[in-house]
Amino acid sequence: MNDVVKYNEAADAANRPVIDFLFEEFQQALPTASFKVWHGAPVFFLDDIPVVGYQDHKHGVKVLFWSGKDFSEPALLGIGKHRAAGITYTDVATINVEDLRRYLRLSAEIIWDYRSLRLKK
């Protein structure tokens, strides 16, 4: 069984619907991406570069877009010193699907390759 499936199944029961929804959306939006548990959470990769991931937390599911600061999306909050930004979802009903799909599209278009610190387009 895939390590991401195991992660999803072990998630907090309150967050499980959000995690299941995100997992399906990520797979649909990024059909060529590989995914694995990386640094303790599911992460989707394009050309071995991390682009988006999520993590089960006590107060919801945190979604991280590795190049999210460059999306110019006000709902995404900057995280750390590099280009990452994220959003937390607490319920499937609160997810703006149109926004999420736009973020996922942008995550495939704007990719910072942290190994060489350059923007790939």
Results as ranks from 00 to 15, higher is better:
M1R: 13
D3H: 10
V4P: 00
K6V: 13
Y7K: 06
E9Y: 06
A11Y: 04
A11I: 04
A13P: 04
N15E: 12
N15I: 08
R16P: 04
V18D: 01
F21W: 02
F23W: 03
E24N: 03
F26D: 00
A29W: 00
A29Q: 12
A29C: 11
A29R: 03
A33N: 01
S34D: 14
K36I: 09
H39Q: 13
G40K: 05
A41E: 15
A41S: 15
A41D: 08
P42E: 10
F44C: 02
F44Q: 02
F45K: 03
L46T: 09
D47M: 04
D47F: 08
D48K: 14
I49A: 11
P50S: 09
V51A: 03
V52Q: 03
Q55L: 12
Q55F: 02
H59K: 15
L64K: 12
F65N: 01
F65L: 11
F65Y: 13
W66D: 01
S67W: 07
D70M: 08
S72T: 06
E73H: 07
E73T: 15
A75Y: 10
A75F: 10
L76N: 06
G78C: 12
G78Q: 14
I79V: 14
G80W: 07
G80F: 10
A84I: 05
G86I: 05
T88G: 06
V92S: 00
V97G: 08
E98Q: 15
E98G: 09
E98H: 13
E98R: 15
L100T: 13
R101F: 14
R101C: 10
R102M: 15
Y103R: 09
L104E: 01
L104C: 06
A108K: 15
W112M: 13
W112S: 00
D113R: 03
D113H: 11
D113S: 11
R115W: 04
R115C: 05
L119H: 15
L119M: 08
